[in-house]
Design a protein around this nucleic acid. Structure first.
Length: 554
RNA sequence: GCGCCAGUAGCUCAGCUGGAUAGAGCAACGGACUUCUAAUCCGUAGGCCGGGGGUUCGAAUCCCUCCUGGCGCGCCA
C-alpha cells in the first residue's frame, strides 16, 4: 500500500542522516505517523516525524525536516516533498501513481479494498444474541447491523471471521416464557387465569399458545412442570424462527447459532468452572462458589454457583467465553447493548485471570436507540407488550435506509430514531445520495452502450487525458479506500466506511455536474469512462461491506 | 454515593494513535435543468469544541475538577 511505500522512503532517509551524521540522536519511532492533511494545499500525505524528533535532536523541527528532505531520495513516487508549517513534511504523489491506482482497481474488481492487514487472525464476532423470548426490536437492529458490517469489514481487512449468535435458551427468562404460554393456553381452553405481572403480556404469547394448541393438542394429563417446559421449548423454537427470518430480511446471516443450553448438556459449564478452580480463581463462601474477579480489576467478586446449587447466568457465560478460545479464536468481539457495560470488567477479569491477554476480548457497546414517533418517545418493553418490532421498522423505513442510518454514527453515542422523520426524510436520506452516485454511473454506461461506445480496455485508456482537478481528486479518494477499510477494521468502527462513501459520492456528483463523460472526443470519453467505472467498483465494494445495495437504476 | 458513555454550527453528527485555518448533512438564504437521471450541483451565512484549571513546541483530542443528559452498580438474565 502507498502508506508503506512512503514510510519506507522516510525510514531510509532517516538512516542516511544518522549514517552521515547530519542527525545524531539515533532515535527511531516505532511507527512513522502518516496522515492525510485536511487541506489539499498540504499535499496528499504528511508526517510529523521532524516534530517528534525535535526533543531528541535538540534542534528545531523545521531544521530537522529540512535535513530529512535533503536526504530523501526523490523517487518517482513523489511529485514534490515540502517542509511546511511548524515542521511537517508534505508529500505530493507523482501523477503516475494515480494511473497505478486505477490499474489496481480494475485488477482487483470486487476484491479491491481488501488487504492482508489482519494476517488471517481468527476473530469471532458475536452479535444480536437477543433472548429468544420475543421478536427483535429496534435496539437489536442497531447491534445487528453494526455487528454484521463490522464482520464484513474485518473479513475485507484480512481477518478470518466467524459470525455467531448466542442463544440464551436456558434460565429464568425462558421459564417465564414457558409459563406465560402455558397460562395463555389454559385461558384458550376456557379457564379464567390471573395472569401474573411478571409474565410476558404481549399478544404474540397468545399467538404462540394458539399455535401450540393446534400443533400439539391439549397438554392434558401432563404434569404442570413438564407442560411448562414443553411450552418453553416450543416458544423458543418458534421465536428463533421469527428472529432468523427477521435477520434474513435485514440481510444478516450467521455462521453459527450457539445454544446456551448445549453448554449444560455437554457439561461444559462444569468443566470450564473446574479449570478456573484448578487455577485457584474460585472459592466457597456463604454456601456459594465465587470467582475472584477483584484480583483482575473488577470491583467485587462474582457468584458462579448460588447457595441453592444452581448456576448464575455469569457461570454459563464464563464457560461460553472460555470455550470460544478452546475453539481456536485468537480474538473475540462481543457486540452488546450499552446497558450491559457493567458486565465488562468481570468478563475481562475472568479471562485475565485465566491467563488470556486483555485484548483477546473486545466488547463493542451499542448505545440505546430512542424510538420516537412524531417526536414522542415510544416506551419499549417486552413485558409491557408495547413495542414496535424491528421487522415493522424495516418494512416502514426500508432495509437500505435502515442499515445505513444505523451505521452513520459511531455506535457509542445514543441515537434518536424517529419513524415519521425517517420516512419523511427518506427522499433525501444520505443513503440515496450514495446509491444515486452508483446509479448515475450505470446510467452513463447504458447511454454509452446505446451510442455504441464499449467499455474501454486498459489499452484504450490514456491516463494523460485525465487532466482535471476533479479527476485527480476522485482518484485520490479511490486510492484511500483500502486504508479506510483497514482503519474501520482495526478500530472496530464501521461508520468510517459510511463517511468514506459519502465523500466519494460527493466528489462523483460534483464531477458529474461539471463535466460530461460522453463527449465527441472518443479518447477522452474512454479515459473518463475508465475513471468513472473505477468509482463505480469502489462504491459497490464499500456499499457491499455495509450490506446496502448498489442499484443500477433509481 | 461509585462506575461507564456522551456534551462540537439552530438540529443530527464527523474529526483516525495530540498537529497546520475545527468539517459534513439537514434547516435558512441566493443561484444552476433545450446538455450522460436536479434523489444532483455551485455559493452565502452560521462556532468560547459544556465551564474552569493543568500537561507541551501544539489540545476538540491527554490529566484533574465541576455542570448537564443517558445507562449501569443482584446469589436476575
Amino acid at each position: 500500500m502507498i502508506k508503506e511505500d512512503i514510510r519506507s522512503a522516510i525510514r531510509e532517509a532517516l538512516e542516511n542522516c544518522y549514517q552521515q551524521g547530519t542527525l545524531s540522536s539515533g532515535e527511531f519511532p516505532a511507527e512513522i505517523q502518516l496522515e492525510v492533511p485536511k487541506s489539499q494545499d498540504h499535499g496528499d500525505y504528511a508526517t510529523n516525524l521532524a516534530m517528534m524528533l525535535a526533543r531528541f535532536e535538540g534542534k528545531s523541527p523545521r531544521q530537522i525536516a529540512d535535513t530529512l528532505v535533503a536526504s530523501l531520495r526523490i523517487s518517482n513516487l513523489f511529485a514534490a516533498v515540502e517542509v511546511a508549517g511548524p515542521g511537517f513534511i508534505n508529500f505530493r504523489l507523482a501523477v503516475g501513481y494515480w494511473a497505478t491506482t486505477l490499474q489496481r482497481i480494475y485488477d482487483g474488481q470486487e476484491r479491491f479494498g481488501r488487504s492482508p492487514a489482519g494476517r488471517g487472525v481468527r476473530v469471532q464476532v458475536e452479535f444480536v444474541s437477543a433472548n429468544p423470548t420475543g421478536p427483535l426490536h429496534i435496539g437489536h437492529g442497531r447491534g445487528a447491523v453494526v455487528g454484521d458490517a463490522l464482520a464484513s469489514i474485518l473479513d475485507a481487512a484480512g481477518f478470518d471471521v466467524q459470525r455467531e449468535y448466542y442463544i440464551n435458551d436456558a434460565g429464568n427468562q425462558v421459564q417465564t416464557l414457558g409459563r406465560s404460554i402455558f397460562l395463555r393456553l389454559r385461558e384458550l381452553q376456557g379457564e379464567t387465569i390471573d395472569f401474573p405481572e411478571d409474565g410476558y403480556q404481549a399478544p404474540y404469547i397468545i399467538e404462540l399458545a394458539t399455535r401450540l394448541l393446534q400443533e400439539q393438542g391439549e397438554l392434558e394429563g401432563i404434569a404442570e412442570e413438564e407442560a411448562i417446559s414443553r411450552c418453553a421449548r416450543f416458544g423458543v423454537q418458534q421465536i428463533l424462527g421469527w428472529i432468523g427470518a427477521d435477520l434474513e430480511a435485514f440481510g444478516i446471516r450467521f455462521d453459527n447459532w450457539y445454544s446456551e443450553q448445549s453448554l449444560y448438556d455437554r457439561n461444559m459449564v462444569e468443566q470450564e468452572l473446574a479449570r478456573l478452580a484448578d487455577k485457584e480463581l474460585t472459592y466457597q463462601e456463604d454456601g456459594a462458589l465465587w470467582l475472584r474477579t477483584t484480583d483482575f480489576g473488577d470491583d467485587k467478586n462474582r457468584v458462579l454457583i448460588k447457595s441453592d446449587g444452581s448456576y448464575t447466568y455469569f457461570a454459563s457465560d464464563v464457560a461460553y467465553h472460555l470455550e470460544k478460545f478452546d475453539r481456536g479464536f485468537d480474538r473475540v468481539i462481543d457486540v452488546w447493548g450499552a446497558d450491559h457495560h457493567g458486565y465488562i470488567p468481570r468478563m475481562k477479569a475472568m479471562l485475565k485471570g485465566f491467563g488470556l491477554p486483555a485484548e483477546a476480548l473486545e466488547v463493542l457497546l451499542i448505545q440505546m436507540v430512542n424510538l420516537l414517533r412524531d417526536g414522542q418517545p415510544f416506551v419499549m418493553g417486552k413485558r409491557s407488550g408495547n413495542f414496535i418490532t424491528l421487522r415493522e421498522v424495516i418494512d416502514e423505513v426500508g432495509r437500505d435506509a435502515c442499515r445505513f442510518f444505523f451505521l452513520m454514527r459511531r455506535c457509542d453515542s445514543q441515537l434518536d430514531f424517529d419513524l415519521e422523520l425517517a420516512k419523511q426524510n427518506s427522499s433525501d436520506n444520505p443513503v440515496y445520495y450514495v446509491q444515486y452516485a452508483h446509479a448515475r454511473i450505470c446510467s452513463i454506461n447504458r447511454n454509452a452502450a446505446e451510442l455504441g461506445i464499449e467499455q474501454p480496455s486498459i489499452h484504450q485508456f490514456d491516463f494523460n487525458l485525465l487532466t482535471l482537478d476533479e479527476e485527480i481528486a476522485l482518484i485520490r479518494q479511490l486510492s484511500r479506500f483500502p486504508e479506510a477499510v483497514e482503519g474501520a477494521a482495526l478500530h472496530y468502527e464501521p461508520h468510517r466506511v459510511v463517511f468514506y462513501l459519502q465523500d466519494l459520492a460527493a466528489l462523483l456528483h460534483s464531477y458529474y455536474n461539471r463535466h460530461r463523460v460522453l463527449i465527441d472526443e472518443v479518447p477522452v470519453t474512454y479515459a473518463r469512462l475508465y475513471l468513472v467505472n473505477a468509482v463505480r467498483i469502489v462504491l459497490a465494494n464499500a456499499l457491499s461491506l455495509l450490506g446496502v445495495s448498489a442499484p443500477e437504476k433509481m
